[in-house]
């Protein structure tokens, strides 16, 4: 009587879906490898080192910010102000450091950018956690404000002549690997460490899984929320620093639709929109998968209209991912 058989979930369709939604990383990884393999059969140059590097570098902003947004969505919230924030941060960083504007040291520009990113995230978090407003509304409002401020600051101009120190973060390399990839790797590793190996990470998942139980366990649920929004704002700033200087020119269109890309990564990567479930690695793999799509379309030589399919495919990924999540959850609920 001291032992009891551990009941396995009934096998079958529901259990399969359940497992699929819980271990989406493997599915995403398989799809990623399959895509790369298939495209490289058609066009061998797809696997060339330069191309792989370009794909990775272009995925940098999505990968970095997805690490933060995963935790926001795990807590049952959402942030859609990331694109507008990136646009504003790019302008501020450019105007602080270029000779034509403030001409401050690059280090100052970067520090201000990071602080501003974290600060905007902090405001989002405070409004959601302590203002008790729905995060979709708060961040929609923030998106609009940030976009408006950005347009005012940039005033229809381009910012060029980025100082070499800043350009370094975009195009510099260390041991032959772009700086941006080093930074991205560090962010991903730290995020995984945070989630798996720190009390803070575990508490975020607990509060996302069952907010009321978290409160009864004495967890500071609201402060955890503020933290994940702030972290996401900070990571938007990090992504801005390592991706925008690569372009050499800063204009008002930077960051456009970026929030949609990141939300897609997180949701496709297996993070449940109802909270409590999701992994950093899943979001990262999904970001790489999405990053492969548009070069894939080019390499398959589908013609001019091919690039337009990029967004349609991303959208379809979201719908399929949410559907799997939803069906799996309702199956789970029945047994």
């Amino acid at each position: 009587m001291t032992t009891q058989a551990i009941s396995n979930p009934a096998p079958g369709f529901g259990a399969t879906l359940s497992r699929l939604s819980r271990q989406r990383e493997y599915g995403v990884l398989a799809l990623l490898l399959l895509t790369i393999f298939a495209v490289s059969l058609v066009n061998h140059s797809f696997l060339a080192g330069g191309n792989i590097r370009d794909i990775l570098v272009s995925s940098v902003p999505a990968v970095i910010v997805a690490c933060g947004l995963t935790l926001v969505i795990v807590m049952g919230e959402i942030d859609i102000s990331m694109g507008a924030l990136m646009g504003l941060l790019a302008t501020v960083m450019g105007q602080l450091t270029t000779p034509a504007h403030a001409n401050l040291p690059v280090a100052v520009g970067i520090i201000v950018t990071l602080l501003l990113g974290a600060g905007i995230g902090l405001i989002n978090g405070l409004l959601v956690a302590y203002g008790r407003m729905p995060s979709i509304i708060v961040t929609l409002g923030m998106l609009t404000v940030l976009h408006g401020v950005n347009l005012t600051l940039i005033n229809g101009h381009y910012i060029t002549d980025l100082p070499a120190g800043l350009r370094f973060f975009g195009i510099g390399t260390f041991l032959g690997i772009p700086i941006s990839l080093w930074v991205t790797a560090a962010v991903v590793i730290l995020a995984i460490l945070l989630v798996r190996q720190t009390p803070l990470g575990r508490r975020i998942y607990a509060a996302g899984s069952n907010p009321e139980a978290a409160r009864l366990a004495g967890l500071p649920v609201r402060n955890l929320k503020v933290f994940v929004f702030m972290l996401t704002g900070l990571l938007v700033a990090v992504a801005t620093v390592v991706s925008v200087p690569r372009l050499g020119v800063i204009e008002s269109g930077i960051g456009q639709n970026f929030e949609l890309v990141v939300v897609t990564c997180v949701v496709v990567g297996g993070t449940s929109i109802s909270g409590g479930r999701g992994t950093i690695i899943g979001s990262v793999l999904a970001a790489l998968l999405l990053g492969v799509i548009s070069p894939m379309l080019i390499f398959l030589r589908l013609g001019e209209s091919a690039t337009y399919w990029d967004r349609a495919i991303q959208g379809a990924f979201i719908l399929v991912a949410v559907l799997i999540d939803h069906v799996a959850r309702s199956r789970r609920g029945t047994h």
């Binding site: 575990r202 607990a206 899984s209 069952n210 009321e212």
Partner: peptide, 21 residues
């Protein structure tokens, strides 16, 4: 508590220690 106060997505270890790890 009567209502479910467990964290369904977390394993037994995390459930036992969350908050006082």
């Amino acid at each position: 508590h009567q209502e479910s106060t467990a964290f369904a997505h977390l394993n037994a270890i995390d459930n036992i220690f969350v908050g006082r790890e």
